[in-house]
């Protein structure tokens, strides 16, 4: 290697680093996105008491249909922001299951009573153990389960109307096809 090439090396390294920094500054880069390791794995086993006085909620209750599982809590502000989107999903015939995450059942009930119930069924995950099995970081999080009972997609944070229209609903429709 000639001396000239060696003296060019620091500049080359710096430019490479600068390109990385520029990429990292991309305005639409989601710094908080976290890929789930549960994707394409069977939905974890759970058996949660129902928020209403119905039977317990477990994966078997899906009986071969596509379901969307939404973790929520009455204490969670973003969940309230997300709620109208869930109501819209319900009207589009998307099967939603709610899991009340680390929330007092009576407070979950009040929340649902006030804001409307988008869920076909609601399970109570009082200690967050089921959430842990799903790999939940915080609420809200939303999981799409296919007909074979595998997790196909996770949405972290509140669903927006755009995400619901562009990503969630098309995915659910596609998975629903036999």
């Amino acid at each position: 290697m000639s001396r000239r090439l060696i003296t060019l090396l620091p500049l080359a390294v710096f430019l490479a680093v600068a390109v990385y920094f520029a990429l990292a500054l991309r305005p639409n880069r989601d710094t908080q996105a976290l890929p789930s390791v549960m994707i394409d794995k069977p939905v974890p086993a759970f058996d949660l008491p129902s928020l209403a006085d119905g039977p317990n909620l477990s994966p078997a209750a899906a009986s071969g249909e596509v379901v969307v599982i939404n973790y929520f809590a009455s204490w969670c502000v973003p969940c309230r922001i997300e709620h109208p989107v869930l109501m819209a999903l319900k009207s589009q015939k998307v099967t939603l299951w709610g899991i009340a995450y680390k929330d007092k059942p009576e407070e979950s009930r009040t929340f649902i009573a006030q804001s409307g119930d988008p869920y076909a069924r609601i399970g109570v995950d009082r200690d967050g153990r089921t959430g842990f099995d799903f790999g939940v970081y915080g609420v809200p999080e939303t999981y799409v389960i296919d007909r074979a009972g595998h997790i196909r997609k996770r949405f972290v944070g509140p669903l927006t109307p755009e995400i619901a229209e562009r990503e969630l609903v098309p995915l659910v429709r596609a998975l629903a096809k036999p």
């Binding site: 908080q32 976290l34 973003p78 970081y137 915080g138 972290v156 944070g157």
Partner: peptide, 10 residues
Amino acid sequence: MKALLALLLL
């Protein structure tokens, strides 16, 4: 969002 959440928790 996560950051906000973490902040609230803190």
